[in-house]
Amino acid sequence: MNIDLTGKVALVTGASGGIGRGVAIELARQGAKVAVNYLSSVQGAEETVAAIQAIGGEAVAIRADVTDVAQINDMVAQVEKAFGAPIDILVNNAGHLVQRLANAEMTEELYNKIMDVNMKSTVFVSKAVIPGMKKLGGGRIVNLTSIAAHNGGGPGASIYAASKAAVLSYSKGLAKELAGDGILVNAISPGFIGGTAFHATFTPDAARQATIQGIPLKREGTPEDVAGAVLYLVSELSAYLTGETIEINGGMFMR
């Protein structure tokens, strides 16, 4: 069975680089029309669109803060207008550690920022696309969680880990809620993925090398590794799969 997404409309949040960019490009490679969401990196978003166009795909870049409900709703309307159809595929990729900070020093402001960018964005972008998916008679939602949801995260990342655990649990509940509408909801839990701003910002090289040595496959993952799992989840290959979480970590964490 081939993965053919021709005619499908996809929205990938946080797609100006890293995992989001890798996912957006692979969706387009399989025929989907892709909306590339970004917040601050217009250059990165334009590079993602250019990469898609270079392989003959169709894409648009749309700026929106996915922690702001009004901007989320406007973004979805822009996507539907740009491609002339509702969204078939949503990949809730936008997320951020924001800052490593011990709980003893945690502020309400930082707590809200972390929860909003990881959990609130997932909830309200999903809410915004559901009516269109129901009109289509089905759809696919893929939420990005993290290995941190299982192990509590690294130093100063407990709130981030909790937000990603919330995404994982929410995905299960949403899957039950939408199953009758033909909308499948699953999650992907990446481990140590290189080529992302996350580790470039928050992981010193010594820690990176030590982590890689602890991975059974002895390498860090790539955005393309994650994109492959996304393709599976949004294709007919996964037609009987919902409410599940796929772990992509090279054997670093096994359930």
Rank of each mutant, 00 (worst) to 15 (best):
A104I: 04
M106W: 03
G84E: 08
L110P: 06
G84Y: 06
L97D: 06
A94E: 04
V98Q: 02
P86N: 15
E105T: 07
D116Y: 03
L110R: 06
L110D: 13
L97V: 09
D116K: 09
V117W: 01
I87A: 00
L90S: 05
A102M: 14
V91Q: 09
N103T: 01
H96W: 09
F83Q: 04
D88M: 06
L97Q: 06
G84N: 12
A104T: 02
H96P: 01
H96Y: 09
M115R: 08
V91R: 00
A102P: 02
D116A: 12
A104S: 15
A102T: 10
I114K: 01
A94I: 05
N93V: 11
E108H: 10
D116C: 11
F83P: 00
I89G: 05
I114W: 01
E109M: 13
G95F: 04
L90I: 06
M106T: 04
M115L: 15
A102Q: 08
V98A: 14
N92L: 09
V91I: 12
D116P: 03
Q99I: 02
I89A: 04
K113N: 09
P86K: 07
Y111A: 13
F83K: 06
G84C: 15
V98K: 03
K113M: 14
L97H: 10
M106A: 15
F83Y: 04
I89S: 05
V98G: 07
L97C: 09
A104E: 13
E105V: 02
T107Q: 07
E108M: 12
N103V: 02
N112F: 01
L101P: 00
V117S: 11
I87S: 02
N93D: 05
H96R: 13
D88Q: 06
F83R: 01
R100I: 07
Q99M: 14
N112V: 09
F83I: 03
A94N: 01
N112W: 05
A102K: 11
N93W: 04
M115F: 05
Y111W: 11
V98S: 09
N112E: 04
K113E: 14
V117M: 13
N93S: 09
T107W: 10
R100S: 14
A102L: 05
N92F: 03
K113G: 04
N92R: 12
D116R: 03
N103F: 06
G95V: 06
P86I: 02
V91E: 02
G95H: 07
L110G: 09
A94H: 03
N112S: 14
L110E: 04
H96C: 15
A104W: 01
N93C: 13
E109Q: 14
V117T: 08
L101V: 11
E108F: 08
T107H: 10
V98Y: 00
N92P: 08
E109S: 15
Q99C: 14
A94V: 15
N112K: 11
D116I: 06
A85W: 01
I87F: 03
L101W: 00
H96K: 08
L101S: 10
M115K: 07
P86A: 14
